[in-house]
Design a protein around this nucleic acid. Structure first.
Length: 358
DNA sequence: TACACGTGGGT
DNA sequence: TACCCAAGTGT
């Protein structure tokens, strides 16, 4: 018995109606029944945060952003540094810079309302093919085909596609497009992604309880563990460098706002070397610098070990960076690498906390 | 097309 | 432990 595309789509939708995950940016059953669409601002925020990022990590950040900035106009009016500080720890900081650009473009060019078409959405900063389709489908219920890593995996198994990614992408997109219904395309998009996240997982997929187990070609052929096929990864180079953590007698920290381009762009950090060959660089201020330890961190494409130098600094202006008052300094506003540097340095710094007795 | 771009959790 | 991976985008 052949299972048609329409039947696959229906099986998936029925499954989603029973097992859809609850998310802060999704509407609940009662709102859905009343025909309420999700807030495009909330959907956009979640989709940008979800780019290469787990749902568990995103929930906290999404809710915090919505609480601080309830509308796209509020976000557009925010200080860059505040938004970057709130994004700290989530990674891929270009997303935060583009988030602000996008918010300001929505206010300046679209009257503060998100456009509801794929073409208008993809023209905005930080919105690519996936996110444009996702917002159009989820927020505006347009019949767009959403293709993320989940969809690629589900399609590669459902149709047993042996072509390696990323070359297989057009083929997988075509399969996904044929399954996209005119009715409730937003729910369909989220259904495929939920299926990929909870049933059709990368390892040990739960084929026994999958709504698509009958038509799934990989399941029939036993190849589900080999799908999708991916290009081999490259080895990670090891890099080294230095970071300088200096404090003034009043507790102020010597910090540097990193340039917008490049790694950790736009984020607050400690001055240091570039992370290439790493001869010990000139310190950012003259002082009695001493070694406190090492901070180890692994990025997507290289591993980094920073030698952490510490010193108490004179009140004179530094050659690099600027002082951040102790009261304004929050380790949580730093990218994770810099928070590790901070944690290595702190026990070695003999600066009294402002206001501390003695 | 290929690479730069973060981070934390799972196995 | 070491590797894999997550609702990708920009260049």
């Amino acid at each position: 018995m052949r299972v048609t595309e329409t039947e696959m789509t229906k099986a998936l939708r029925d499954w989603y109606d029973r097992y859809a995950r609850t998310m802060p940016w999704r509407t609940g059953p009662a709102e859905k029944l009343a025909g309420t669409r999700p807030d495009p601002y909330s959907v956009w925020l979640s989709e940008v945060m979800l780019q290469q990022t787990t749902v568990a990590a995103v929930k906290k950040y999404h809710d915090r952003f919505v609480a601080l900035w309830p509308s796209v106009a509020d976000l557009a009016a925010a200080e860059d540094s505040e938004v970057m500080a709130e994004w700290a720890g989530l990674g891929y900081y270009a997303r935060a810079r583009n988030l602000l650009k996008c918010a300001r473009a929505v206010v300046a060019d679209h009257g503060g309302r998100f456009p509801d078409t794929h073409d208008a959405l993809i023209a905005l900063p930080g919105i690519g093919p996936y996110t444009a389709a996702a917002i159009a489908a989820i927020a505006f219920d347009r019949a767009e085909t959403v293709v993320d890593g989940n969809v690629e995996r589900v399609m590669s198994r459902l149709f047993d596609v042996a072509t390696p990614l990323p070359a297989a992408k057009p083929e997988l997109t075509a399969h996904a497009a044929r399954l996209t219904p005119r009715d409730r395309p937003g729910d369909h998009a989220q259904a495929v992604m939920d299926l990929g996240a909870t049933i059709c997982t990368p390892r040990n997929p739960a084929c026994g309880i999958c709504p698509l187990r009958d038509p799934c070609l990989a399941r029939q052929r036993g190849t589900q563990g080999e799908r999708p096929v991916k290009a081999p990864k490259k080895a990670k180079p090891q890099r080294r460098g230095y970071a300088y953590v200096g404090r003034r007698a009043d507790g102020a920290w010597l910090m540097e706002t990193r340039p917008d381009k490049g790694l950790l762009g736009g984020m607050l950090g400690f001055p240091g070397s570039d992370w290439t060959q790493a001869p010990e660089p000139a310190p950012p201020a003259p002082a009695d610098w001493r070694e406190a330890g090492e901070a180890v961190h692994v990025f997507t494409h290289f591993a980094l070990t920073l030698t952490v130098m510490v010193a108490e600094l004179p009140p004179t202006n530094p050659e690099r960076g600027h002082f951040v008052a102790a009261e304004a300094f929050r380790p949580a506003a730093l990218p994770t690498l810099m928070r590790k540097v901070h944690d290595v340095a702190t026990p070695h710094l003999a600066v009294e906390r402002p206001g501390a007795a003695g």
